[in-house]
Amino acid sequence: MKFHFQQALRALMLLAFSAMIASLHWTEELTKFINPKYESLSQTASILFFILFLVQLTRVVSLSKTTQHCHDTGQACCSHHDHGQSVFTRKKIISYLIIMTPIITGFFVPAKILDAAIADKKGGAFILTQQSQKSKIEDYLTTNETIDENIYDEHDPDPRLIEEKQEMTKKQYEQLKQKLAQQTTLKMTDDDYTIYYEEINQHLANYLGKQIQLKGFVLKEESFTENQLVISRFLITHCVADASIVGFLTEFPEATTITEDTWIEVIGTIGQTTYEGASLPVIHIDDWVTIEQPESPYLYPITIRMSF
């Protein structure tokens, strides 16, 4: 009987990866990293890590003294490969430390909700001027057929997402869009935010003068006048690394007193203005209130199922 320390360490790390992803899932922290739609993909990763851990366990203790190294594969041996049998060196310790870093920080460092500083790095309000001309980022299309064949989306959609209308057919989407367009007051919820957003930016003329109610965090630019700010949200396609900014420029006197990253909810009227040479919607505020940062601060694109 021989105990292999390095193999045990590897087993422990595989288990830790599995546990980290599982714990992020249980504590619902995972939604601060990725679009909930892809949560089952991460769960798969957690399960795969656990299976790898079980397999790795068989290597921790060897009965015979000979190393089991790839003689049992019955195939040509792979030479440039580290099987975790070789001696510990400084290089190996560092490489194990690197692999352990995300496990440790994943357990102990809290996830941070993206803020105005990141929004600024991602282009800030400048990006909004572009979206008003070409706003199509919010639709995400998949087909039933490809989902079945594809390794990316082998899971069934979360029923909760369907309930929340995060996934619908093209027809339903169009109907919903029309219904929303007819309302006199646009009350933007997290579920229909992207529909309104696309509509207002594409057909601004139809919405001028309408009442609108929405929430978001405050984003400011150096080039803004004192009474201007952007009520913005992050839209997450897959994970927070691909977050993009959506939001509306607003104008009201108290804007100067509100600091960046404050979450506010506003009621106002939709108007039109120009910023940096681009025409874009602006909200003239009638009433506003400071709110707590919501439980789910991010928006996710609506998946439109195409039925062929």
């Binding site: 992803i21 890590f49 790898l52 996830a111 941070k112 500083a117 927070v240 690394a241």
Partner: peptide
């Protein structure tokens, strides 16, 4: 900003791990 860095870092990793596996 370090906390943001950490969040983005982990999210890239969590996104990539299923595919890497």
């Amino acid at each position: 900003s370090l906390l943001s860095l950490h969040t983005i870092f982990l999210s890239i990793l969590i996104e990539a791990l299923p595919f890497v596996l």
